[in-house]
Computed example of a mutant assay.
Amino acid sequence: MISEKEYNSKLAEARSYLIERVPSLPELGIILGSGLGAFADLVKDKVTISYKDIPHFPVSTVEGHAGKLVFGKVEDRSVVVMQGRFHYYEGYTMQEVTFPIRVMQVLGVTGLVVTNAAGGINPEFRPGDLILIKDHLNMMGENPLRGSNLSNLGPRFPDLSEGYNSEWRKKALAIVQEHEIHPHEGVYAAMSGPSYETPAEIRHLRVIGADMVGMSTVPEVIVANHGGMKVLGISCVTNMAAGILPQKLSHTEVMETAERVEKKFVNFVQGLMRVL
């Protein structure tokens, strides 16, 4: 675990590298989950930078994650889009997983839209549904804020009673019907992965209040809240979780479902840019 001084030095290097290459600083960050990268095609006046070229940035290793930062405009909003994310199960530390959120923070980003592909636990959900995250369960066994507090970036004990901004959720719910989306909200449970959950684990998660499950998002949301950002979360239900239906799980199914609902997802997030 690196020191606060060393971490801030790495942040400063990444910030300097990006500021030299982008025409304007973003106000809104967007993280695109597995198979949902097509939203980046909407960005106008774009500047695309590969993760591998940014100082101290991790590199995506999972299918469906392009590994690029895209700067530009969507609906006249200055945005930075993460076309692919990093996962704890890839072997990265929590500080490495959330480093891009810290970079967004020091670039001046004040709001984050985070998306993911998730397994459905709530029996009312179906593959292809887009669900607004109203709360989460951190079942990963780790917290990205563990260790010395980065006092220049946020408080030692950040409040997560509204980890997913209620005002933004209301605005999102107000436009779901025009995008042919059921007005679902749910609780997202984050597991460490990379193995899919067992049927027993899914039964446990259902009992304690989870509606969908995945292997990402929660570390990023914790760090974004620590840094004072507003957060909106969207899960794309790409499959039903283990034991909900009598079939085995595969990443291929995740990618196929994400591809099938890609247009609906892109239109919805584009609509959000007009109201957030």
Rank of each mutant, 00 (worst) to 15 (best):
N122T: 11
N138H: 09
G193E: 02
A189D: 02
N165L: 03
V176C: 12
A172V: 10
N138L: 13
G209Y: 00
G209W: 00
I208P: 10
K170I: 08
W168G: 08
P183W: 00
N149R: 04
G147T: 06
V113F: 12
E201Y: 02
I181H: 06
L150G: 01
G163N: 05
Q177G: 13
E142L: 12
Y196Q: 01
E162S: 13
A210Q: 10
H179P: 02
E167C: 05
D135E: 07
E162H: 11
F125I: 07
L132N: 00
H182P: 07
E185R: 13
T93N: 03
L160W: 01
P194K: 03
V176L: 13
N143K: 06
S161P: 05
G214A: 12
P183R: 05
R126E: 07
L160G: 04
P155V: 00
E197K: 08
M140S: 04
D211N: 14
N152H: 12
K134V: 06
N138E: 10
N116K: 07
V109I: 09
M215D: 01
H182R: 11
M139P: 00
G186L: 11
S166H: 12
T217S: 11
L130K: 02
N152Q: 11
A210K: 12
N149D: 01
G214H: 07
G141I: 11
G186S: 06
A174Q: 08
T217Q: 04
H184M: 13
E124F: 10
F157P: 03
H204W: 13
Y188L: 09
G141T: 08
V207K: 13
E167K: 10
I133D: 00
Y196S: 03
G128Y: 01
E201Q: 08
P194S: 05
A210C: 10
V103F: 11
T115G: 03
V97S: 12
G108Y: 06
N122K: 07
G147F: 10
H184Q: 11
G141Q: 10
T217H: 06
I131G: 04
S161V: 12
G120H: 00
L145Y: 04
V106P: 03
Q95F: 08
G111R: 14
S216A: 03
N138W: 12
V97I: 13
G141N: 07
M212R: 09
R156M: 05
R126H: 07
Y188W: 08
L160N: 09
Q95N: 06
I208G: 09
P100N: 11
V207M: 15
N152L: 15
P183Q: 03
M140N: 04
L112T: 04
K170T: 09
Y164L: 00
S195W: 15
E142I: 15
P100F: 08
E142D: 13
E185A: 02
S148D: 14
P155S: 01
P144E: 08
I208E: 08
H184Y: 15
V103R: 00
F125E: 02
M191Q: 05
E180A: 14
